[in-house]
Nucleic acid binder design. Sequence first.
DNA 1: ACAACTTTGAGAACGAGTCTCATTATCTAC
DNA 2: GTAGATAATGAGACTCGTTCTCAAAGTTGT
Lengths: 155, 155
Amino acid sequence: MAGRGGGGRTDNIGRDNIGRDMDGQQDLRLTPQRRAVLEVLRAVHSHPTAAEVYDRVREVAPGIGAATVYRSLGLLVQAGQARELSLGNGTAARYDGNTSRHDHLVCDRCGRAVDIDLPSPVEMIVNELAHSTGFAITGYDLQLRGLCPSCRPGG
Amino acid sequence: MAGRGGGGRTDNIGRDNIGRDMDGQQDLRLTPQRRAVLEVLRAVHSHPTAAEVYDRVREVAPGIGAATVYRSLGLLVQAGQARELSLGNGTAARYDGNTSRHDHLVCDRCGRAVDIDLPSPVEMIVNELAHSTGFAITGYDLQLRGLCPSCRPGG
DNA sequence: ACAACTTTGAGAACGAGTCTCATTATCTAC
DNA sequence: GTAGATAATGAGACTCGTTCTCAAAGTTGT
């Protein structure tokens, strides 16, 4: 048996056109299958592979096909509802339902990825200096000099 | 016909054990095939895929097999003579004969990667501020305060 | 209700990379 | 130099993640 189309309630989700030229692309139709994929992605915080998403989704929607899961993941990424992570060659792509800006620290052995907050450049310098000099840094002040927009040549 | 072993002069290259526990691993035997792979890698600056390396190597060593090229690339990476780059999921691994520390800027469309020198954190801050404020930055002074190693508690 | 379009699931197909194996080189005693 | 042990090779089968194809079934607009 092949082809079931949607089946339940189908809403739309808007897509953000970040970095894309306007090309009249439609919103992404949120079919029950796509919704299930998205819900798994949002519920899980382990950066699952497509296969892991597939397994989880089947617990909720047993009849879903692998192709649909792969397609949905791609569409959700395109629509800005998920992120795809490259955690090394030869490893399966991983997906992240957390679309806010963040970075990852990846284990070379098992591939596990944990979310990290990268320190700001200034904190980086301070920590690095604390390490290399043995100082306990208690404060800092970065003073920059220059010409404001109205004083700069041609400003 | 299968199996030719080396064929010409075979030297060794030492391997650096960066980040590895000492495990009595031997040096990498530099067979003519491996040498050919390494020479292609050093001659080319385009971050080639294994398939591209294979094509180039065959111009010099027509009889070489794909498995040997893949194996050699892996061994050279292990031996610290080459680097493997992950430039996105679903794309073939790329190899870099330049093993000195550097970063890459990757084209989302064609996958081309160019070497870049990342600015230091301080330069980053200065450039960012110049951009966001419109100031022409002419100099800066970062002053940190703290306790030197002999003054810090327990120092 | 009907036509046009979209989505689906199954499975074939694909590409990158690894594994197996018989064969051939190279290395280490002697 | 020769023999035996060990390592490397090339061909091709194989694995795995992912995409493609296609008929069937769902959805949308009128």
